[in-house]
Design a protein around this nucleic acid. Structure first.
Ligand SMILES: Nc1ncnc2c1ncn2[C@@H]1O[C@H](COP(=O)(O)OP(=O)(O)OP(=O)(O)O)[C@@H](O)[C@H]1O
Length: 632
DNA sequence: ACGCCCTTGTTTTTT
DNA sequence: ACAAGGGCGT
C-alpha cells in the first residue's frame, strides 16, 4: 500500500486521487506538480488500471523515465507497458505503426534539424534562390517559420503577415518553397520534427476508426509541463482524450519559456473551455527551496504583467542565508569566483553533482569551462550539439538509413560525398542514377573511387538484409570495419576519439530490436536524456534545466544584453518570457543561490561594459546580500 | 573537386 | 574576432 497521507499534502492528494474527469493542476515552481503526476500514475495502477492504457507526455524522455522508475518502485509490476515520453516520441510510435494510412512507407526516416536544412538547400537550388537573397529568410530562418506555422496550426501566409511582415513581399515564394520542401520530404520518405506531430494528428483526424481504437486504449492521459505545449501538441492530446475526457494536465504559466518554438500558454487558459466541467486544482506549498530563495523568486516574477497571480508559500524552515548577488569585474573574474565558491562548497561536504551553474546561452559558459578545467573541478556540460548530431555519428547512421529507406536522398548524399572525387555535382548525378536503377552495383562511379564503390555496394547489400536489419549493432560494426574506420583515420586527426564515440553507439544500438527503432530513438534523444554519467558540477542552459533541482545554483552572466538577451527586450512579450526564464533559473535552487554578473566582458564585437541585469534591479534590496568579487 | 581567400553574419533558447 | 560559406583559380 502506498502511504498517500505521509507522502503528499492535502492539495496534492486531491490531484492524485481525483475522481474521473478532466483536471488542470496549476501551481508554482517546486510545489510538487511532477511528484503529484508520478503518484497519480501509481494511484491509477494501485486501483487496477491496466498500465498499457496510460499515456504520459513529458518534456524530456528522461523525465518520463525517472517518473516511471519512481512509479515502479511504488508499484512493482507492469510500468514498462505505459506509453511515456516526449510528444515527439509518442507521436513517432503511433506514426511508425500506421504510416501507410497517411501515405508513408513504414520505414520512413526522421530528419533532424541539419538533415532538414540539407533537404531545404536542394529546394533553394531548384527555385534558383540564392541563400543570401535579400529580404528572404535563409535555411534556418525558413525552417523556423515552417515549424511555427505547423505548431500553431496556422497557414503560412497568415503567420508571415502577422509575425514576419518583413518577408511579406516574399510570401508567394515562401509558400512555394514550403510546398517544394514538403514534396521532397515525401519523395525521400522522410518526416521532420514538425511532421512527426502534424502527420500523427492528421492520421488521427482522418481515420475515425483508428482514433476510436486509441481513445479506447489510452484511457488515462497525463501531461506534464502543459504551459510549454503548442497548439498542435494540445490537439494531439485532445484527439486521444476528447471521448472519455480522462486527462490530467499540470503546469505553471510562470514557467512558460518555449514560445519561440510554438508553445502557447493559451492551452492552459482555455483548458476549461476545451473540457467543460473540468476541475482546476492548485498546489500552494513549495517544498523545494528555502524561504529566502522563494521570496526572491516570487519578487522577481511579480514584475510580469501577464500572469495568473498564484500563492506559493514555503514549507521549509528558514536558512537565515539570503541569496547572494555577486558583482565581478570581468567574465574571467566571474569564472574564478564561481570556481572558488565551488571548492568552498565541496569542502563543506556538498558533492559536485548537487551543484549547477546555469546561464542564458551556451556561449556564456566559455570562461567557466576553461576555469573549471584549469582548477580540475569535475563538470558535466549539456552542450548545444547533441551526441547524435556529431558528424561522425551521422556519417555512420547514413549507411543504416539508406539500408532501411533507399529513398533517403540526404543519407545517400552524405555517404557518397565521403568518397574521393565526389562533390556536389557528382553526388547529384549518382543519386539520379541510383533512384532510376535502385542498384548500387550497376552505377558507374568516378574512377577515383571505383574500388571503394564496389566494396560499398556489397556492404550496403549486406546490411540491408533482413537479418542485419534486426541487429543494428552488428550493422554499425560492419560499416565501421568495412569503410568508416579507414575513412575517419585518413580524414581526421582525432579519429581515435571519434571511433570511441562510435563504439558507444554500438553498445547503445545493441538494445534495439531493429534499425528503424534505433534510428528513431537516436534522432529523438534529447540532450538531457543522455547525461547518464551524473558526475561533477552541472553546467547547463536554463532551458535544459527545466524541471530539475540542485542544492546549490549559480546563475551567471546576469547582465543586460546577455540575460535578458539583447534581442528579446525589443518587445514586452519577449522581456516577460526572459523574466519567466529568470524565475525558472532561481527556482532550481534548494538551499543556496548565487546571482552573478560581470561588469565587463572582453567581447570582440559590440559593447564591452555591462550593466547588471534589469531583473536584479527589480528585486527588493532586503531579499539578498551583496557581494563584490575581486579580480581572479 | 578541391584549396585558398574574401565576405558575411554570429550569440538566444531545442524537439 | 572568428568561423562558415561563397567565389574564384587550379
Ligand atoms: N508532499 C511532499 N513532501 C515532501 N517533499 C515534496 C512533497 N511535494 C514535493 N516535494 C519535493 O519538492 C521538490 C519539487 O517537486 P516537483 O519537482 O514535483 O515540483 P514541480 O512543481 O514539478 O517543480 P517545477 O515546476 O519547479 O519543476 C522535489 O524535491 C519533491 O520531492
Amino acid at each position: 500500500m502506498i502511504d498517500y497521507i505521509h507522502l503528499l499534502n492535502e492539495e496534492q492528494r486531491a490531484a492524485v486521487t481525483a475522481a474521473p474527469g478532466p483536471i488542470l493542476v496549476v501551481a508554482g515552481a517546486g510545489s510538487g506538480k511532477t511528484r503529484a503526476l508520478t503518484y497519480r500514475v501509481a494511484y491509477l495502477l494501485d486501483n487496477g488500471v491496466d498500465p498499457s492504457r496510460i499515456f504520459l507526455a513529458t518534456f524530456t524522455n528522461k523525465a518520463a523515465r525517472q517518473m516511471l522508475e519512481r512509479v515502479s518502485r511504488l508499484i512493482p509490476h507492469g510500468t514498462e507497458a505505459i506509453w511515456g515520453g516526449t510528444f515527439h516520441h509518442l507521436a513517432h510510435r503511433l506514426l511508425r505503426r500506421h504510416a501507410s494510412l497517411v501515405g508513408y512507407d513504414p520505414s520512413f526516416t526522421i530528419l533532424d534539424r541539419s538533415d532538414s536544412a540539407e533537404l531545404l538547400s536542394d529546394c533553394y537550388e531548384e527555385m534558383k534562390l540564392s541563400r543570401s537573397e535579400l529580404h528572404f529568410p535563409r535555411r534556418e530562418g525558413a525552417l523556423e517559420i515552417f515549424g511555427l506555422a505547423a505548431n500553431r496550426e496556422v497557414p503560412l501566409e497568415a503567420l508571415i503577415a502577422e509575425e514576419f511582415p518583413h518577408f511579406a513581399e516574399q510570401t508567394d515564394r515562401l509558400v512555394e518553397l514550403a510546398d517544394l520542401y514538403r514534396k521532397r520530404k515525401r519523395k525521400a520518405s522522410a518526416v521532420d520534427y514538425d511532421d512527426l506531430l502534424s502527420e500523427t494528428v492528421r492520421l488521427l483526424r482522418e481515420q475515425p476508426q483508428l482514433r476510436e481504437e486509441y481513445q479506447d486504449r489510452f484511457h488515462h492521459i497525463l501531461v506534464d509541463e502543459y504551459q510549454d505545449t503548442s497548439r498542435l501538441q494540445a490537439d494531439f492530446v485532445h484527439l486521444l482524450a476528447s471521448g472519455h475526457r480522462q486527462i490530467m494536465a499540470v503546469g505553471d504559466d510562470a514557467q512558460s519559456i518555449y514560445s519561440w518554438r510554438g508553445a502557447d500558454i493559451r492551452n492552459m487558459l482555455t483548458f476549461p473551455e476545451r473540457y467543460p466541467g473540468s476541475r482546476l486544482l492548485y498546489l500552494r506549498a513549495n517544498y523545494r527551496s528555502t524561504p529566502e530563495i522563494l521570496s526572491l523568486a516570487n519578487a522577481a516574477i511579480a514584475a510580469n504583467r501577464f500572469q495568473f497571480p498564484k500563492e506559493l508559500a514555503p514549507v521549509r524552515e528558514s536558512h537565515r542565508l539570503k541569496p547572494a548577488v555577486v558583482s565581478c569585474p570581468t567574465a574571467n573574474a566571474q569564472a574564478s569566483f564561481v570556481a572558488s565558491q565551488l571548492q568552498e562548497l565541496w569542502r563543506e561536504g556538498i558533492p559536485w553533482e548537487e551543484i549547477a551553474v546555469l546561464y542564458r546561452a551556451h556561449f556564456h559558459a566559455l570562461e567557466i569551462q576553461l576555469e573549471l578545467t584549469r582548477s580540475r573541478i569535475p563538470f558535466e556540460i549539456t552542450s548545444g550539439l547533441r551526441f547524435f548530431e556529431q558528424a561522425h555519428l551521422k556519417d555512420v547512421a547514413a549507411f543504416l538509413r539508406l539500408a532501411v529507406n533507399p529513398h533517403d536522398s540526404v543519407a545517400f548524399a552524405r555517404v557518397v560525398r565521403m568518397f574521393p572525387g565526389v562533390g556536389e555535382k557528382t553526388a547529384d548525378r549518382l543519386w539520379e542514377e541510383f533512384s532510376r536503377k535502385a542498384d548500387l552495383g550497376s552505377i558507374v562511379p568516378p574512377k577515383s573511387c571505383a574500388a571503394a564503390w564496389k566494396e560499398w555496394a556489397s556492404l550496403q547489400k549486406e546490411i540491408a538484409s533482413p537479418e542485419l536489419r534486426r541487429a543494428p549493432a552488428a550493422q554499425i560494426e560492419k560499416v565501421i570495419d568495412a569503410f568508416y574506420r579507414s575513412y575517419v583515420e585518413s580524414q581526421h586527426a582525432d579519429a581515435a576519439h571519434r571511433l570511441e564515440d562510435l563504439s558507444q553507439l554500438v553498445s547503445f544500438a545493441a538494445e534495439f530490436p531493429d534499425t528503424e527503432s534505433l534510428l528513431g530513438q537516436l534522432t529523438l534523444l534529447t540532450n538531457t536524456d543522455r547525461s547518464q554519467s551524473r558526475e561533477g558540477v552541472h553546467l547547463s542552459t536554463i532551458h535544459q534545466a527545466k524541471g530539475l533541482e540542485w542544492r546549490v545554483v549559480f546563475v551567471i552572466m546576469l547582465a543586460d544584453g546577455l540575460f535578458p538577451s539583447g534581442r528579446s527586450t525589443e518587445s514586452l512579450l519577449g522581456e516577460e518570457e526572459e523574466r519567466r526564464l529568470f524565475y525558472v533559473a532561481t527556482t532550481r535552487a534548494r538551499d543556496r543561490l548565487f546571482l552573478v554578473y560581470p561588469r565587463y566582458r572582453a567581447s570582440h564585437y559590440g559593447e564591452n561594459s555591462l550593466r547588471p541585469s534589469r531583473f536584479l534591479a527589480e528585486i527588493p534590496r532586503e531579499l539578498y546580500s551583496d557581494l563584490r568579487a575581486s579580480r581572479g
